[in-house]
Design a protein around this nucleic acid. Structure first.
Lengths: 315, 315
DNA sequence: ATCGATCATGCATCTATTGTGCACGGTTAT
DNA sequence: ATAACCGTGCACAATAGATGCATGATCGAT
């Protein structure tokens, strides 16, 4: 089930553990049971003759050797991905399984068409799509659960933009719109500036969530400190709050507004044009693979379609 | 049993197959059964989604993709060995198993003391020594059956001196002596030149064997074409032939002459001083490993002892 | 201090992978 | 034509690997 990689799966497990720090979380992420993860790590130490873990409180922690090994394995993984990709390209071969990951709106607008296209062009390819937030998508890439992820570019605290484990390709910039109640004085406008909405009560996501940093970045860019009145988790909830007149919010252009009764969507103008950058990420080395290349091409076309359907003042 | 490598053992098997060309030979070399090798290669193709083998007559042959993959895997293996070595060094860890290989005289004079020393300095290390001719030693290194080999340097048709899969260290040059019957007119001499023995009937090993190329190289160096009268396989047989007065022969200094009744050994002087170069070979990348380093040091000391016990005109 | 929550690990069990031995079919050489 | 060789498929066996539960250890909160 977990056997598409030429590198010992136990080393992959160790890498995931290095990321999340506990056996339980590693188990959840890799799809193993906690006992299996524990046994794998023990076995890995035995085979290599190295002590990789130490007890630390009620958990375990990587030793210096363990951290060293994980850090060094980055290039090893990349090397293998690169070799595989080159061999695939050289031999015009077909891959059997292909895992995709992405967050909700991207999954709907980009990943679903991609999966559909691949399903028709490569009938015997087993495509699997996993919906997950960007941070988890990167985790899933490391865990080799997925091979390509469509995520929002972010300077996460754990994964940087130039992480040696990944290669990222910009697909499109998705501008953030404002949603306001339809009985709001500005509701008849086409566009607004953030300054005009500075004093409004804002509805955002919980701090620490995927999009909260986008929210704050948008306002710091124009030098305004918004008043956060409410917090929602799902877009739908946020839209409902706005519809109920509780405040205003930011909504990515790609997020649909279908179920919105009393809400209008306005484009933002002015010097601060907040947007989220949507990128495709793959494991480093695998980008030359023909399957990855084809997928990136399809995503790019799809992204261009989306961009072409927009007013020209949005770039 | 075959699990000390972080790279999928099936890829190792493929590499061995690339070396010897038939499933049967691969099985013999790796220690698997032919069916197992066949199944492994089939499984490997399935997992990778690549066609690596094609039927060819009554055997199978690598496809272009297969050869590409094998060639590319060289750096992958070296990368892993390097990483493991660095981790071992960083963490002062202990390896559990250590495989040594060498040909007969080297095994006796160099490998046996090394194994003995390691057994005392690292009691919990499982040392295994395999005697095999140099060509097979390299095969065993590729197959990951052994980790260090002591072999005669040779420009083999299959393994070059600068093969990207190995790193080699010169241990010592072992001069070739002449052995002649004790009733031979030159038997009272201490040294001879090859020219003086040009017209003698020579006893050598079978063409294509490990040392035959050494024999021819020695004579081409002095521009003499020897007359090969007899062929032997073992040193002991050759010595017995010489003792029976059938001819003269070349014998490495390291090869003992204990059971020789009517044979004397003379050093060779003159412009052509034939010798065999004895080197230690390891998989590329693994040379930084502390265990390898320690072993090389021990071998070097041992080699220096041997050199020190020699007349100074032998360098 | 006590109780509960969290985390890792050991054990019994089961499953699935993997290797073996033998037989068979195809191919080449004598 | 016969024999030797090579690879592969199949039934069976052995081993590795995963699961679920129970246990022990640690930390935080009441």
């Amino acid at each position: 089930m977990h056997n598409r990689c030429m590198i010992d799966p136990r080393l992959i497990t160790l890498r995931v553990f290095a990321r999340c720090g506990t056996v339980g979380a590693t188990a959840e992420l890799t799809g193993y049971s906690p006992s299996a993860v524990s046994a794998q790590l023990r076995e890995l130490q035995r085979v290599l003759g190295m002590q990789l873990l130490t007890k630390d409180g009620r958990g375990v922690r990587l030793t210096a050797t363990g951290r060293f090994l994980v850090a060094g394995s980055d290039t090893l993984i990349a090397e293998w991905e690169s070799l595989r990709a080159a061999a695939m390209e050289a031999g015009d071969q077909v891959q059997s399984r292909f895992g995709l990951g992405g967050f909700s709106t991207a999954a709907a607008q980009l990943l679903a068409p991609l999966a559909a296209t691949l399903r028709s062009t490569r009938p015997l390819l087993e495509v699997q799509v996993l919906e997950a937030n960007p941070a988890r998508c990167f985790d899933l890439l490391v865990a080799e659960r997925i091979d390509l992820a469509v995520v929002v570019a972010m300077q996460s605290d754990t994964y940087g933009e130039d992480d040696p484990r990944f290669e990222q390709t910009v697909l499109l910039d998705d501008p953030l719109d404002v949603i306001i109640p339809s009985n709001h004085p500005l509701a008849s406008r086409e566009t607004v500036t953030l300054e005009e909405l500075a004093s409004e009560p804002w509805i955002t996501e919980a701090a620490g969530s995927t999009y909260h940093s986008l929210f704050t970045a948008a306002f710091t860019a124009v030098g305004v400190t918004p008043r956060i009145a409410h917090e929602a988790v799902e877009w739908e909830t946020q839209i409902a709050f706005v519809g109920a007149g509780l405040g205003v919010g930011l909504l990515p252009r790609l997020a649909p507004l279908r179920s919105a009764e009393n809400v209008v969507r306005l484009r933002i103008t002015g010097k601060g044009k907040p947007a989220r950058r949507i990128v495709a990420a793959v494991r480093r080395g695998s980008i030359a693979s023909p399957l990855i290349q084809e997928s990136l091409g399809i995503l790019q076309v799809r992204a261009n379609h989306i961009l072409a359907a927009r007013p020209e003042d949005d770039l």
